[in-house]
Write a protein that binds this DNA or RNA. Structure first.
Length: 877
RNA sequence: AGGCUCUUAGCUCAGUUGGUUAGAGCGCCACCUUGACACGGUGGAGGUCAGCGGUUCGAGCCCGCUAGAGCCUACCA
């Protein structure tokens, strides 16, 4: 008998990476390219190249890998395409910081040199991401790894830009955009994070020209008054309407500006009913400026400093410094009338957290409504399903109120906008740099210096990664992809835009299902952050608990929008891995792997416990497949967990021990038990593999299966023939009896070595034969002397009724303590209450008439059982 | 302001189309080193399912209201 044994203890670090390299070397991650076979494809949400992966990446990639491994084992030719995102602002900032350490600014370096530095930085760091994903065990096809700035993807970006431009869906215009003074670039609306802050509301007097009247305006941003070009009141406001057309003297600036009427801008009910108008620095004022043909005076520049237009006193000051000085001056000169606390929403840059400045500038935009409409339709008509479905309304809500998308960024790292300008004023938008200006023939064209929003290239990811716009084999076979798994936080940034671009350019939805996972938080639901010190680093916990335990934990928590992750959860599932290890170790000590090749197990030869465990496993298999098909990773993981630990380990292995250890049965029984155990272990490992790829491979290899790896073995599916409700029912009765006896033993303070006689009254011959046959299970598990059939139990034996079978346990010479008596009385009371409830229901005509017959029958049956049991228990008093 | 979601055991959460006695993990208590496992085994304690009202023969689940929490969207000075 040749048996490979597992090492005594479970040490995941000893084998996890070994198996990853085995899988990769064997080429298991790479699918064949064949349109005629069932394919399944998925693209990774590309992490930023700058990054170290955080626990959120661990979650999203674990879930994808579970899905992908499940599909692959289920017979699909499966592609999981990996890659990274160039992450414009983030990456540029990281490299700028590196340069700063050397005392160099990017401006000194120059654009070409700087971009070269970013590329070399990227080359140095790109493996960091892959290494971390490898530690997680993800089964990506690394031969197809992509980067958003690769040549092919860049070509797709230029192609899309040019086509949208030609179709009039991309335009360049001067408009008010969100500007980050720290990143020194425009950002899109959704990159601004609004937070409520307690600021101040300042009331400032503006004297009306040639009169003693002063108009009081209220503002949270007094420094912008330097750029005021009007004061507005509501035209219907009796207090002020007579002043429209007059002017005020703008304090500090000493300019004279008009008083205008603007019913859109001014709510007469709010504050003083007078609004200062700063068209260059406020979104509403900008609109008002256009309506009323007001000049725009830019007093804050790209860096957030005051311009010469703000006046010599303020020029060069930072916005916050300028605010303090403006207030000081207003106070001194008697214009500051009042100040009070005021809670309002302030926009912060999503990347660097600086306060965003509304700024008028010339930018490129995508006219988004025509793209949004078909994208809404795809979700509405079910072509794309969003899971959980509650996100659909959020999606619709946003898509139906969508604003044009500002796509130009004043950065150097990214896809340069393919627009070329000539001195003559001609603009050429084309994929390749034109040789000469089509208008004047000049050969000196200058390319737009801006780059595109990073999300513009991400929006093309599902098809640009497959070679589009070329009609490559990969594109034909693997596009559209099947499922997208990502965090709900990038539903608008990424998912919605992929749908819009996908349907516009390929005519197809880029995926059929979107699974939005929650956000990982700490065990108390708090956001993880460095400052709170509650961050869980995936590599740390993989080192501590093993990748399998981390993956399993994430899968089991994956339901809901918040995922409260606690170390002790991972510890718990690492204990589960340890359990798997030890149960397998036990199995390997007793089974012959050669039995694999023997003839198939004949169902008729099986004992009830064997039919029971196969039936339970079959039900588990069905449940797991069903759960995975509906993205219930938690349910799938829980189901396997429960089966493996609480059915296989707690019961079946214990049931099998007497036979395996030759305490019961003969060699034939032993051989059969070994084969069943092998079968159950094999199927369980395959079932578990998507969740815990490493430990299952390590063990499965010892089983010498026909396949080279568990990851390419077929995933178990339900076989109706294995269902055995009769065995399940009878073993459940056995379990219940064992539990009852153990319970009594514990309550009466007997030691495990104390043994008793059990008396069973079984009228039904078939049942009696079953119990005669399976009596050893009761003897072993409930630690009995013997089971006696159909003989009157001695007086004083504890009586009970389980599934219609009377049982009595004979306890040797022990008084029933008052607590035990109390316990029996409590149980009797409880049953009495339930009996009353069932009886009440059955006496209710309406219940009997209206409830489904099955429910009524059930109640009747229950009533009979309760009466019988009550009778038995009363004998114990 | 609008929209979405949540409130179930000490903690973190499940609970499928309304149907007996509401589950899991961790934590807690007692006992046990029994030939895979103390990262273990056996047994146990612990819940008026946020509150109120309604629909129903029957509500943790459906409807309404109240209280509390969170998230997203939005230009209110």
């Amino acid at each position: 008998m040749t048996q490979e044994e597992l090492s005594k203890r479970y040490h995941p670090a000893e084998f996890e990476q070994r198996w990853y390299h085995f899988w990769e070397d064997e080429g298991f991650f790479t699918p064949v390219v064949d349109r005629e076979i069932p394919n399944f494809s998925i693209v990774i949400p590309p992490p930023n190249v700058t990054g170290r992966l955080h626990i959120g990446h661990a979650l999203v990639n674990s879930l994808q890998d579970i899905l992908v491994r499940w599909k692959r084992m289920s017979g699909f030719n499966t592609l999981w395409l990996p890659g990274t995102d160039h992450a414009g602002i983030a990456t540029q900032m990281v490299v700028e910081r590196e340069l700063a350490k050397e005392g160099i600014s990017r401006l000194e370096l120059g654009r070409d040199e700087f971009v070269a530095r970013v590329w070399s930085w990227k080359e140095d760091h790109k493996n960091q991401i892959k290494d971390q994903l490898v530690r997680m065990g993800v089964s990506c096809d690394w031969s197809r790894e992509r980067f958003t700035l690769d040549d092919g993807l860049s070509r797709a970006v230029r192609h899309v830009f040019v086509r949208l431009y030609e179709e009039g869906l991309i335009y360049r215009d001067v408009a008010m955009v969100n500007w980050c003074p720290r990143c020194r670039t425009a950002i899109s609306d959704i990159e601004v994070e609004y937070r409520e802050v307690t600021g101040r509301l300042y009331h400032i007097d503006y004297p009306v020209t040639g009169s003693d009247v002063r108009l009081t305006v209220a503002t949270t941003r007094p420094e912008t008054m330097l750029g005021d070009t009007a004061v507005a009141v509501h035209p219907g406001d009796e207090r002020y309407r007579h002043l429209i057309g007059q002017t005020v003297e703008l304090p500090l600036a000493g300019r004279r500006i008009p008083i205008i009427g603007d019913s859109v801008l001014v709510d007469p009910e709010f504050g003083t009913g007078v609004v200062k108008v700063t068209p260059a620095h406020d979104r509403n004022d900008y609109e008002s400026g256009i309506r009323n043909e007001l000049p725009r005076l830019q007093v804050i520049d790209e860096a957030g400093r005051m311009t010469p237009e703000a006046g010599a006193t303020f020029e060069g000051l930072d916005r916050t410094e300028a605010r303090a000085l403006v207030l000081e001056r207003l106070e001194n000169e008697g214009f500051l009338r009042a100040t009070h606390d005021h809670i309002h929403a302030v926009g912060f840059c999503g990347k660097c957290d600086a306060v965003v400045e509304p700024m008028v500038s010339r930018q490129w935009f995508v006219r988004i409504a025509p793209l949004a409409e078909p994208a809404v339709e795809l979700v509405r008509n079910g072509t794309i399903t969003i899971v959980p479905q509650s996100w659909e309304s959020t999606y619709f809500n946003w898509m139906e109120n969508i604003h044009d998308w500002c796509i130009s960024r004043q950065l150097w790292w990214g896809h340069r906008i393919p627009a070329f300008y000539c001195e003559c004023g001609g603009v050429v938008v084309s994929e390749q740099e034109p040789a000469s200006c089509p208008q004047c023939g000049s050969g000196t064209l200058v390319q737009d210096s801006d780059v595109l929003d990073t999300w513009f290239s991400s929006a093309l990811w599902p098809f640009s990664t497959m070679g589009w716009p070329e009609q490559t084999e990969d594109f034909r076979v693997f596009y559209p992809t099947d499922t997208l798994i990502t965090g709900f936080d990038i539903l608008f940034f990424w998912v919605a835009r992929m749908i819009m671009m996908g349907v516009r350019f390929t005519g197809k939805a880029p995926f059929s299902t979107v699974f939005l996972n929650g956000l990982v938080r700490d065990e108390h639901g708090q956001k993880m952050s460095k400052s709170k010190g509650n961050v869980i680093d995936p590599l740390d916990v993989i080192d501590e608990f093993g990748a399998d335990a981390v993956r399993f934990t994430l899968a089991i928590l994956a339901t809901g929008r918040d995922i409260p992750l606690a170390r002790n959860r991972m510890q718990g599932y690492s204990a589960f891995a340890n359990k798997i290890w030890n149960a397998s170790r036990f199995a390997l000590m007793h089974i012959d792997v050669e039995l694999r090749d023997a003839s198939p197990i004949e169902r008729d030869e099986l004992e009830a416990v064997e039919r029971w465990i196969l039936s339970r496993l079959n039900r588990t298999t069905a449940d797991v497949n069903r759960a995975l098909a509906s993205f219930r990773f938690d349910e799938a993981a829980n189901t396997i967990y429960h089966f493996f630990w609480h059915e296989l380990c707690d019961w079946y292995i214990e049931f099998a021990k007497p036979v395996l250890l030759a305490r019961h049965g003969d060699a034939h029984d032993r051989r059969r038990a070994k084969r069943v155990l092998l079968e159950v272990l094999d199927r369980s490992l395959r079932l578990l593999h998507p969740f815990m790829p490493f430990i299952t491979e390590e063990i499965w290899q010892k089983l010498k299966g026909a396949h080279p790896s568990v990851m390419v073995a077929p995933y178990p599916i339900e076989h109706e023939i294995l269902d055995d409700p009769e065995a399940e029912r009878m073993i459940a009765v056995i379990q219940q009896m064992i539990t009852t006896i153990r319970n009594l033993r514990a309550e009466r303070g007997f030691a495990p070595k104390d043994r008793f006689r059990l008396f069973l009254q079984i009228a039904n011959d078939r049942e009696r034969r079953f119990f005669e046959n399976a009596g050893y299970l009761l003897i072993e598990q409930a630690r009995l002397d013997e089971v006696v059939f159909n003989e009157p139990p001695p007086a004083g034996a504890h009586r009970d009724l389980i599934a219609g079978i009377e049982l009595a346990v004979e306890f040797p010479h022990k008084e029933v303590s008052p607590e035990q008596g109390e316990k029996v009385r409590r149980e009797i009371e409880q049953i009495g209450r339930e009996l009353a409830s069932v009886t009440g229901r059955l006496e209710n005509d309406e219940f009997v008439r209206k409830a489904p017959p099955a429910v009524v029958d059930q109640a009747r049956q229950r009533k009979v059982e309760l009466i019988a049991r009550l009778e038995k228990l009363q004998q114990n008093l």
